[in-house]
Structures are given as structure tokens and as C-alpha cells.
Amino acid sequence: MFTATWLFEDRADAGRQLARAVEDEGLDDPLVMALPRGGVPVAYEIAVHIAAPLEILIVRKIGAPGHEEFGLGALVDGEEPELVLNRRAIRLVRPPKGYLEAETERQRAEILRRRTLYFGDRAPASSRARDVILVDDGIATGGTVRAAIKALRRMGVGRLVLAVPVAPKSELTELRSQVDRIVCLATPFAFRAVGLYYRNFEQTADEEVLALMEKARLRNERD
């Protein structure tokens, strides 16, 4: 049986530990960008620690039929949501005809729902020509993060740093050429799932995302 010793109490603890590593990157007026929902509590702690604004980048995984955690690609929010497909995974799974189109439209609707909920009438902060710290609560297959990186590059960001508490070493090796820097606290041997390395890995609710974003906004205004 596989067992893992947890490394983090919860996402906030992971964020505080990660923040101490990120502060050494020497970024110029960075924007902390979180992948919701789980990446927001991690990113909030980083934003507070380095006194940077916090923003959200909505990315929705296109999961395999019957196995939603196995990503066939991802849809990234933007003026025009961008679809990034994993052709190797698609060849392996061979989803039925029409599945990708239907699932993409389902995730497009979920992106619209979350955009309305998280932003309301507010325009997202621009990342163009700006140093960005992209944050999630961990990496498993890397599909969601890979899609986010590709979208941010197309948005014209400045220096791009990927910051995650835990990830498999193999995924970081593949991602290293796509970002300027990777900050990762742990790369456990025989990596199985992100949640195994947290003592508390309860799902992050929309209400927590909204509360943290409001706290970050008020703190940034005071600073």
C-alpha cells in the first residue's frame, strides 16, 4: 500500500512556506496569479508576504470520459477562451466522436459562471509585460498548468515564475523550458496525488475564493 507523510498542514501553510522561497526571486512589481480554486489560498499567502496584487486565471480541465482527473487538455479564460489539447493523451484515450466538443462547451459555460462570480463587473488585472508568479496547490499531470503557461505567454507577460508546493520531478523537467523559473518545495519519489502531501486537503469553496480575493484587494489598496 502506498503511504505518504504530509508536508503541509493545509493550503495556507503551503503558501506561507512557498512565499519564503518566492521572495528570493527578485521580481519587479510582480502580479501573483492563482489557478482557482485550490491555488487561491496558496497564492494569497504569497501575495501578502511579498506585498503584491493577487489575480485569478480561470483554467478548466478537459477530462477523459469516466476519468475526469485524467486531462485531455484544458480551456483557459481570456477575451477568447483558449483551448490547449494534449494530443498524446487524446490518442491514448480515443474519446468518442463529439466528446471533446461537448466537454469543451461544458467547461466554457463553467468558465463564464466563474468569471461572473469572481470578477463581477471588474476587469481582470492585465499581465502584459509584467512579471507574473503563477500559483497552484500542486501539479499532478501538469495539463492545467501547461495550458495556463501557454495562455500567459500569448498574453505577453514579462518574466514568468511557476510556484507550486509539490509536484513530480518528471513534470517539472518538462515545464522548465516553458517558464523563466520554477519554485517548488517538494518533488516526492513515486508521486501519486497532490492531496496526499496535505494533512487537510478539503475542496476550496467559491466563498473562500471570494473572501480571499477581497482581503487581498483591500490589503493592496492600503499598501
Results as ranks from 00 to 15, higher is better:
M1C: 12
M1Y: 11
M1D: 12
T3W: 06
T5Q: 13
E9Q: 11
R11M: 07
D13S: 02
D13G: 02
A14W: 07
A14N: 12
G15L: 09
A19F: 01
E23N: 06
L27D: 09
D28G: 08
D28Y: 14
V32I: 15
A34W: 11
G38C: 04
P41A: 00
A43C: 01
I50M: 08
A51R: 09
A51F: 07
L54G: 03
I56M: 08
I58V: 07
R60E: 12
R60H: 13
K61C: 09
P65V: 07
P65T: 06
H67R: 15
E68R: 14
L72K: 10
A74Y: 03
D77C: 05
R87C: 03
R88A: 12
R91T: 04
L92E: 11
L92K: 07
L92Y: 13
P96S: 05
Y99A: 13
E101S: 14
A102N: 13
E103C: 03
R108Y: 13
A109Q: 15
R113L: 10
R115Q: 13
P124A: 00
A125W: 09
V132H: 04
V132K: 05
V132N: 03
D136V: 05
D137A: 01
G138E: 02
I139F: 08
I139N: 02
T141Q: 09
G142K: 08
G142V: 04
G143T: 09
A148N: 11
R154Y: 10
R159T: 02
L160K: 04
V161C: 08
A167Q: 04
K169R: 15
T173W: 10
S177V: 10
Q178E: 14
R181M: 07
L185D: 10
A186E: 15
F189H: 15
F189N: 14
G195L: 06
Y198A: 01
N200I: 01
E202S: 12
Q203T: 02
Q203E: 06
T204C: 10
D206R: 09
K215Y: 12
A216I: 01
L218D: 13
L218T: 12
D223K: 13
D223W: 14
